[in-house]
Structures are given as C-alpha cells and as structure tokens.
Design a protein around this nucleic acid. Sequence first.
DNA 1: AGCATGACTAGGC
DNA 2: AGCCTAGCCATGC
Length: 113
Amino acid sequence: MKSSTGKCGQAGGATLAERIKRAIRRIPRGRVASYGQIAALAGHPRAARAVVWVLHSSSGKAKLPWHRVINSRGTISLRPRCGYEEQRARLMAEGVAFDSEGRVDLRRHGWKE
DNA sequence: AGCATGACTAGGC
DNA sequence: AGCCTAGCCATGC
C-alpha cells in the first residue's frame, strides 16, 4: 500500500521529504552539509526551505543527524535559544572545529562526497 | 485559494 | 564587505 496521499507529507516513497531525510542520513560523522546541499542531493537544489521544514517535522522523532546540517556559510542557523549550543556541542563531539566566530571550516568539515 | 511561517540561498546595491 | 530583496519548497489555518 503505497499511500500516495500521505497525510503528513512523507508517505513512503519518492517524496521530497523522504529524499531529504535520506540525504541527511548520508552525511558522514564529523562532517557537515548545508541545507542547499541536502536539497540538491534530494533532487531540489532550491528547496533549502523544504529541508528546514523536514528537520522541524522530524526533529526529535526521526533519527536524523540534524546537527550536521548548517547553512552555506558554515555557521549554525539555529537561534541561541533554540538548540544552538546543543548543535555546536554535538558537532564538536564528532570532531568538528569551530573558530572564534562560531563558524565551521567547510573546506575541512564540509561534506564532499 | 491565499497568506504566513521556517534552522535557506543567491544576487544586487 | 554588509544589508536587503526576491525566489523556492512544503505545511497549516
């Protein structure tokens, strides 16, 4: 039964959300990827906003390394009051280094398959 | 059907 | 170099 009429966005199968989740799971430990990159891997290079929604929708539910997803500048987009520190701590725990500006060196930790 | 929200991105000034 | 605007995708009311 492939319910194409998924109520919550992703109904098993080729939905954008499903691809996005899968792309996020593909991020190697100790590496970070940008929203746009995830969207691109999902097939929609301009769907960075959709990635945001997916993370919100699955945040805490699905086992997604959401902390490995940051913006294209290499900085954490989360607000200081909304898990910013947690994400930073998780990335550091994986070996990702932050500079004094709270920025990650994408040339070094950026996910490049 | 339209407007508003969300952890975005790229381009222009 | 920094701020602003427009574009994109999906969901909820």
